[in-house]
Amino acid sequence: MIEYILSILPSLLEGTLVTLEIFVITIVCSLPLGLLLAFCRISRYKPLSNAVGVYIWLLRGTPLLLQLFFVYYGLPNFGITLERMPAACIAFVLNYAAYFAEIFRGGIQSIDKGQYEGAKVLGFTYLQTMLRIILPQSARRVLAPVSNEAITLVKDTALVYAIGVGELLRATKIAVSRDAVTTPFLAAAVFYLVMTLALTRLFEHLEERFGAYE
């Protein structure tokens, strides 16, 4: 048993690296994109706000798997052909940015109006108010929902299996089919659990740090 697990370990680790790659790319790109979308969503310029509203509705309103298929199989019809991995990352970034946008919007709007007024009478510009006063306070409030999304993302990466990207679950399934045993599933579960545990700890630490003033 131990020997068998050790024998499939290299391929599982290889798959895990791909999983982590998708995870990191998605987080690094979708967080800033989500913040940008959140600002557009709360913009007083209605066409912009409405356009982002529609974007968020579309991306949260359809399955991520469908979006993944669309980017990989659908876009070639419009003359855009992407490799598996870039297609997967684009679909994930666009989808997660929509969720993060709504989380950030909520976080920004949860800050008391008095904070804007306090900043305004001191002469802060809108940008300074956001960067120095509103966002640092919002950060603390969005940590918990962002942590939820990040953990969901770790598991969502398994979806890219559907367009043939060799991530952890695909590596597992290959081992299962080849060796006609189910042990690799358990091993994969442990891999996912370790990743989500690390994330949980990281966010606990961040919440403590950002909440020091409370």
Binding site: G114, E117, G118, V121, Q137, R140, Y213
Partner: peptide, 28 residues
């Protein structure tokens, strides 16, 4: 014009000293 509010509107994420120095540094 300086304004003092009924509800204080201090910046909760900044220490007392930083509440006071933030605007002079960033704005003035």
């Amino acid at each position: 014009t300086g304004m003092v509010f009924q509800s204080f509107n201090l910046f909760p994420h900044l220490t007392v000293l930083k509440n006071i120095t933030e605007a002079p540094i960033a704005v003035a």
